[in-house]
Design a binder for these strands. Structure first.
Lengths: 346, 346
DNA sequence: AGTATCTCTGCAATCGTGTGCAAAGCAGAT
DNA sequence: ATCTGCTTTGCACACGATTGCAGAGATACT
């Protein structure tokens, strides 16, 4: 690898001058500057960032810690974050935490050892598991921004979607359509899902719509979803709508409803949460709440960058909440008026 | 940030001794070693990788360049690569090339400047666009392994799926089911898709099944897929099966067939390529060829690592070809015997 | 001509680690 | 008491860049 010294020799100057020339410093004579730049180009000089990082005490790198990547929510997020980071002049160091204590700690440790300028940490279902490591990192002066829910977030910079508002929107939508027997289905109550449900439940209560225990399904895996859906459709008085906390679960609900011979949205309305690309692949296309990934990523990166550069006006920890939008597609419709109840035709 | 020197002072030794102690060198007295380690732990010492990298001329980092991340094939690949890399003790530096000349060059330049120990480069539809940069990087001593198709791959380490074999498998499957009017649909002929088609076509030819021009649809985007499918089903003698080069395209085909009121697999068999998770979300579940992402990733990383460590037995460029498997699901069935043609009932 | 000013360049230190080499300390043997 | 050999430690340099400071030349001004 060719170094500053190498071109310094060729140019007959010292490596300091070469360094300044390549940095376009006004301190070096324009003609020598030009000569040096040409020599550097010819020699294929490529700055050694490792050395530069050591000297400048900055790496122009931000760490991105994500629980997993198989849930399509995360790739979309990563893409946006990468775009914004690149725009701001930062590289990404990606780590997959598997939403696991030890693994998440490892990620933080690695980023800390590599002196990332800042860290974006996306929490998984279990929230912020490596709490103490994050605190230590932040205490040592590396800005950290969390995305997603985390217990006791007072002294952390945080970016999150307003899950509760999203839940409210969906509930209003279903209520407006005339649904009164509504089932909810999702993973165990990690906080994000919990908020979605809270907002959802609040609106139902306002409208006087009950949320029956047998209509509330908690799932751990795909198999649970299948069982849950089967149980729902077999009820004597089955629901006319199902709210799945996540689009990816809604996809499984679709599959199972089809096997049960229940058509969407005629016999059953299904709504999801997140607005993944997946939502438009499904048929019928899924009504959901979302389209906030891009603003989330943007807020995420710009908050971190302003912390890194010390340009954020507000020194106190910030909580940025992005409000998602209701996106009505083809999977929601008014409930079929069972037996044309009012007309008494049944 | 606490440095070696800091704990050296606390321990009353020189930083060299601390360095050796933490590296478990046998050169340092066991008791002092223990003492130093404790002090380091208490002080929360965290090695500065940047400095270490500079000194050791190695970063324990591999660069992963991927065209995009919205196509679900890539996240699955990234996940596997990350797992294998971690196992081998390497961090990942992710770059998204957008399958674009300038951007891909930028990625390579950044990885080169950051002195990644090696680079894994996944080519997109256009093949290896930053050819010269890759050559320069390789010439400077950084191992590079390419995944996917690339023109004139003789002097490059390469890992790829056997697209041709996959195409053959699918063709055999369709032929065995009794299909004789088969349409193919995919993106413009980048080489990967091309090989899939070649293998597919070879088998059809062997079996005496024609591949009609009007049954060969080239698409650029989703809209093209919709138009193509519409045209296919409107043919006087429409196909009984459609082969989409990629699962993600098959998903769009599904959508359009449904709108056209054509049921899968009764009226139309659809098969894809890649075996993404998506394939099982679709209904009916998609018959496809794949399940080779994990072996691909494994081969990918272990080849690169052996190059980095100089332990690969064979100095000459290697081409590792992974054979995909046919995965039969519910989207393929024998063609409906139109009007029970033989019986003359029509 | 002498001096002040300005422009440009080089010297040398620094970032935090790793490591070859020398040397100090110590024990045992003669 | 001296020598040998072994263990343990420190000195000092290197990795490749950035940058404050001093000084060399050139120019202008008195």
């Amino acid at each position: 690898m060719v170094t500053l010294e190498d071109i310094a020799l060729k140019a007959g100057v010292s490596h300091s001058t070469v360094s300044r020339a390549l940095a376009d410093s006004p301190l070096v004579n324009p003609s020598t500057k030009e000569r040096i730049k040409n020599l550097a180009r010819e020699a294929g000089y490529q700055v050694n960032q490792v050395a530069r990082n050591l000297k400048t005490r900055s790496t122009k790198t931000i760490g991105l810690v994500v629980p997993e990547i198989s849930n399509p929510f995360y790739p979309e997020l990563i893409q946006r974050v990468a775009d914004h980071a690149k725009l701001a002049g930062y590289s990404l160091q990606l780590h997959l935490s598997a939403a696991d204590q030890e693994s998440e700690s490892d990620c933080i440790a690695s980023l800390s050892a590599n002196r990332a300028d800042g860290v974006l940490l996306v929490t998984g279902e279990r929230g912020l598991v490596a709490r103490s490591q994050v605190n230590a990192l932040a205490a040592s002066g590396t800005p950290v921004v969390i995305m997603g829910w985390v217990e006791d977030s007072d002294h952390l910079d945080l970016v999150a979607g307003d899950d509760s508002a999203g839940g409210r929107e969906l509930a209003k939508h279903l209520a407006d359509l005339g649904h009164t027997r509504i089932a909810v289905l999702g993973k165990a109550p990690h906080r994000g899902a919990f908020d979605r449900l809270v907002g959802f439940g609040d609106v139902l209560r306002e409208r006087g719509i009950p949320l029956l225990p047998e209509m509330s399904i908690e799932v751990k895996n795909e198999e649970d979803v299948r069982l849950g859906v089967t149980r729902l459709v077999a009820l004597p008085d089955p629901p006319t709508a199902i709210f799945a906390y996540q689009d990816s679960l809604a996809a499984v609900v679709y599959r199972q409803l089809e096997e049960a011979g229940v058509s969407i949205p005629n016999e059953m309305t299904v709504v999801g949460f997140d607005d993944l690309d997946l939502a438009t692949y499904l048929s019928p296309r899924l009504t959901t709440v979302g389209a906030h990934i891009s603003p989330l990523a943007s807020a995420f990166v710009s908050l971190l960058v302003s912390r890194i550069q010390g340009t954020h006006p507000e020194p106190a920890p910030q909580s940025i909440i992005v409000t998602p939008k209701l996106i009505v597609r083809a999977s929601s419709a008014p409930p079929r008026s069972r037996g044309v109840a009012f007309g008494g035709l049944s």
